[in-house]
Structures are given as C-alpha cells and as structure tokens.
Computed example of a mutant assay.
Amino acid sequence: MWNYDEFVAKAKLYFLRASERSRADDEFTFWLLLGSEFLLRAPLAQKGSFLLAVPEGPSLMHAAGYTSATSEPKSIPYKTVCERLKIIIPEFSKVYDDAMYLANVRNEELHSSNSTLANLHSAAWMPRFLRVVEVIASHLTLPVETLIDSEIIEHARSLANEEDARIQRTVSQKIAAAKDFYSKLLEAEVESRRILKIPATRGRFYSTAECPACEEKAFLFEKVVRSTRERVVDDAIENDQIMVSTDFQCLVCGLTLGGMSEVRIAKLETERVVTWTTEPEERFEIEPQYIEPEMEEEYGND
C-alpha cells in the first residue's frame, strides 16, 4: 500500500497519461497534478511506510506488516506529507508553497462547482509543478526526464524562464523607482527615516540587510519552515531553526519586495539558520530552590 517503487511507478503512469492528452485538455493538467501527489509520497515511503500511516486505528500495524481482511488502513493527508517532506528534504521548504498551491487547484476542481482547470493558464501552475517535481526527483536521484515526457519538461521550463524574466522586470522597476525617490531626499529626511522602526508583530521574524536600491539598512522578513531536534551543548540546550525570506522592506527609500521570488531576484538572502540556546532551568521550568548549589572547596578537603 505504501511501497516506494509502486509510488514512483504510479507517478510515471499518471505522467504518461498526461503526455497522451492535448495541452489544452483539462485531463492533461489533472493527470500531472495527481501524478505529482504520488511522487511526493515516495520519499516518505523510502524512509519507512509508517511515515504515511495515520496514527489512529490499524494503519500503523498495517505499515508494520500486520494486516487483516477487516482492517481499513488510512494514509496521512497531503498537507502532513508536505510538512514531513520539509524535515526529510531541506530544499522542499523552498517549494512548499508551490506544492500547497497545486493541492488547492486540485481541491477546487474536485470539490467545487468551478471549472478550475479549464480556466487555469499553464503559466500559473506549470512552473510551480516543475519546481516541486525537480526537488523530489533530485532527492530520489532520479533524472526528471525519466519521470515526465521531455516536451512537457521543456514547456514548463520555458514558462518558468518567462516567469523569472517578468519578476526580474518588476524588481528592476521597483529598485529604479526607489533609487529615484532616495536621490531626491534631503539629508535631514534621510536621517529621520533611518530611525523609523518596524511595527512589532507577534510571531513575525526579521533580519537586517543592505537595501539594493539605497544601500541603507533594511528589513528582511522571514518565517520558520523547519526546526531541528534539541541537543545539549556545554550544559545548555540548543536547536536550529531554518528561516526562509518572505518579504523585504526599506523604510528609507520605500523599496518593498513581496515573496521569495522577488527577494531572490534582488540577490538578497533567501534562507538562513538561527541557533537558539536555552538554559535547562528555563527549558524545564526548574524552580531555583531545586537547583543543586555549587559547593565551595573547603580548606584541607581537596
């Protein structure tokens, strides 16, 4: 039920069915979307079928090889698959939003009265599809061309290149406008804008970066996509959080960039690792009176 080779084979079968359809046919998109979902489950199956089983009922026992005619094992939902892939495949964090977008397209087609696929332009989903498939294929050490027809890949890559070119134009225009605005500011105005602060928002992370327009200190907003296990280092507890950039804002020249794609095109940092250190007393909420005091050495007792 949760066999790695079978997931890959089923994904290939669905991708093949897509290649036999016209690009203008709804089924072309539908088969590719379904095929990608089987491919997404393959890395989890490769690590262990139990990663695909829901924890309730007989599913875990089924994954362990204990089956019965009356049992009905169930698989974890798509979103849980994607959350686990972020842990197994660090690069997947960068395409997580793309994977969720594809799932939303599929859901809207299947569970609403809308003709979603019929009205969906290839440029809206094929670059996202390609990015997701390439990350999974790279992890599995499978050439993308062995999974999907080469013509479909080339089509998706050409659309991705067009998307990058469009974003490049947008970012260049934004930077040019911000530079022009900055050049017209008086020194006193620049100084007053330098002391502006980002409004505090609970749960919102940011780091500082040099603005590509005015070279002033600006803010790069981030979100946590993955956390490592805690570890003990020199009597303290540490863990790493992987942060990806979501937006950029310069309060001096007014440059704003939305989304990781614009941040990447502007050659700003898109990912970083933050190490957090916590004292055991704080981590486990140990009351001071229960902490063993350090004993002073006594004369003649060394």
Rank of each mutant, 00 (worst) to 15 (best):
T246C: 06
M243H: 14
Y101M: 10
Y4I: 10
D5R: 14
V190Q: 06
L13I: 10
L159P: 05
A103K: 03
A176G: 12
L257D: 01
P127Y: 02
D302E: 14
L40I: 06
S93G: 07
T246Q: 07
N301C: 12
R264Q: 10
H111L: 09
C253F: 12
P127G: 04
R194Q: 14
I198M: 13
E215F: 13
D180K: 15
S138N: 09
I286Q: 05
R157Y: 00
C214M: 07
P43N: 07
P90L: 06
I237E: 00
F181H: 15
R283A: 00
W125I: 05
M260Y: 00
A9N: 10
A45Y: 02
R226Y: 03
P143S: 07
I148N: 04
W125Q: 04
G65K: 12
D26S: 02
I237G: 05
Q173M: 13
C214W: 05
P293W: 03
V95H: 02
R272K: 12
K184Q: 14
V224H: 05
M260G: 08
D235Q: 13
R84Y: 02
M1Q: 14
M295H: 12
G57D: 10
G254K: 09
S261F: 08
R106K: 10
V8E: 01
P90N: 01
R157K: 13
D25L: 03
E279I: 06
E191T: 14
N161Q: 15
K47S: 07
H121P: 04
D97V: 08
E216M: 03
R229A: 08
P43E: 06
F50I: 14
R204P: 08
E285C: 05
T146N: 07
M243K: 07
S113E: 12
V105S: 04
P293R: 05
F38S: 05
A63G: 07
W31N: 01
S59Q: 03
S59T: 11
N107M: 08
Q241E: 12
E269S: 07
E279R: 07
Y4K: 15
A266S: 09
E191H: 10
H121V: 05
G300F: 06
G57Q: 07
V105L: 02
I167F: 03
A18V: 00
F92L: 04
V95P: 00
Q289D: 12
H155Q: 09
D26G: 00
E285D: 11
L32F: 03
T170M: 15
E56P: 10
